[in-house]
Structure formats: structure tokens, C-alpha cells
Simulated assay, not measured.
Amino acid sequence: MLRIELDVRPNADGWFKENFHAAELEDAGMPRFEVRQHNVLYLAEPGITRGIHAEPWDKYLSPSNGRVFAAIVDLRDGETFGRVETFELDAGQALSVPRGCGNSFCVLEPHTVYNFLVNDHWSPERVTVDLFDPELAIEWPFPRDRLSYTERDAANPSLDSVRSALV
């Protein structure tokens, strides 16, 4: 995984950034990334939470507006399985997340716009984990009763179940 600081340049109208510049990102250590799909998610309210989802593609994540708390969980078989890294991201940061790592986020500001660039087309295949698994101990930025998440995400399996499926 790689956290990238982006150059956000204020101007008379607001700001400008090069959100994705392949050569500069490769120079910063990001593996070559061929964009196949660019998804944009508008999130109206703080506390909206999604994840933990590990799809069979690499992701490049960055807000265009607002802020998110991102929790990334390594779900690949190996010694780093279950490792959690958390970040607060605004328009000046991006994350490069390799396939097999679970992405989750919580909206911190109203009217957040989150960009997901991926290097494969969408498919339903994915590994999911419970947002509130005690083994992960993710410290979400709001109490659980202030988070808004889907019923599908609420039914995600435990980290231990995912671990058992890998064996």
C-alpha cells in the first residue's frame, strides 16, 4: 500500500490537482496501473460507512471534496494477514491499495465525493469482513450508533472466518 501526497494548487476559482499522473505515481513507488474503470461516489452525510471489501483488482482512492477516514485491512494469505492501517484523506491525499486488501471508509464531512480508480472491470467477486470485528479493533471516528452502513455490510463474516477459508 502507498499513501500519496498530491499537489493541490489554490487558484482564484478554488483549486486544481492532478489526481492521477501515471509517470509521477510510478516515480513515487506505485506499481504500473492501467485504469479500467473510474467510479465516483457522492456521500451526503458524515458517518456513512462502507466495507470491508477486498476485490480482485488494485484501487487508487482519493476524495475530490470532503474527507474520509479509510481503514485498509490486509486479507491476503501470509504473515501480514489481518494488519490494519488507517488514514484520514482529503483532496490532497490518495491511497494505492493492492488487490486482496480490504477497503473500508467512513465519511467525515457532508458532501464528500470519493473517487475509485480500478484496474479491472467490476465483478461481484470479493472477500468481506465485519467492520466491527474485535480482532481488527478499528477505531471508527464516530460511535457505532452514529454510523450508517448497509445490511449487507452488517452481515460480513468475522476475520477468523476469512482466515479459516484461506487454509
Rank of each mutant, 00 (worst) to 15 (best):
R76I: 03
E135M: 14
Y149W: 11
V118C: 01
Y149P: 04
S64Q: 07
H111S: 13
D13P: 00
L117C: 12
G66A: 07
L2A: 01
F33T: 06
T49P: 00
E34F: 06
A44C: 09
M1P: 04
F81T: 13
H121L: 08
N119S: 11
G100V: 05
A23Q: 15
E125H: 06
R50K: 15
P31D: 11
E5Y: 04
N19Y: 00
C106F: 01
N103E: 10
H21T: 14
H21K: 15
R50Q: 15
V107F: 08
V84R: 05
Y114P: 00
S158N: 05
G29Q: 02
V68N: 02
W15P: 00
V97N: 02
F105N: 00
S161E: 15
V8D: 07
P46N: 10
A137R: 15
G78Q: 11
R36V: 13
V129A: 10
P141C: 12
N115W: 01
I48N: 03
S62T: 14
A54D: 01
P31Q: 12
P134S: 13
F116Q: 04
M30S: 08
V40Y: 00
V97Q: 03
R163T: 14
L75G: 14
F81G: 08
F69C: 02
A91F: 11
L6D: 15
V68E: 11
D58Y: 04
P10M: 09
A28P: 07
H53P: 04
R76D: 06
V73G: 03
E85I: 05
A23S: 14
K17W: 04
C101G: 06
E26N: 03
P63R: 07
T86F: 10
E151V: 07
S64C: 05
F116V: 06
K17D: 04
I72Y: 05
T80S: 12
V167T: 08
R152N: 15
E135H: 15
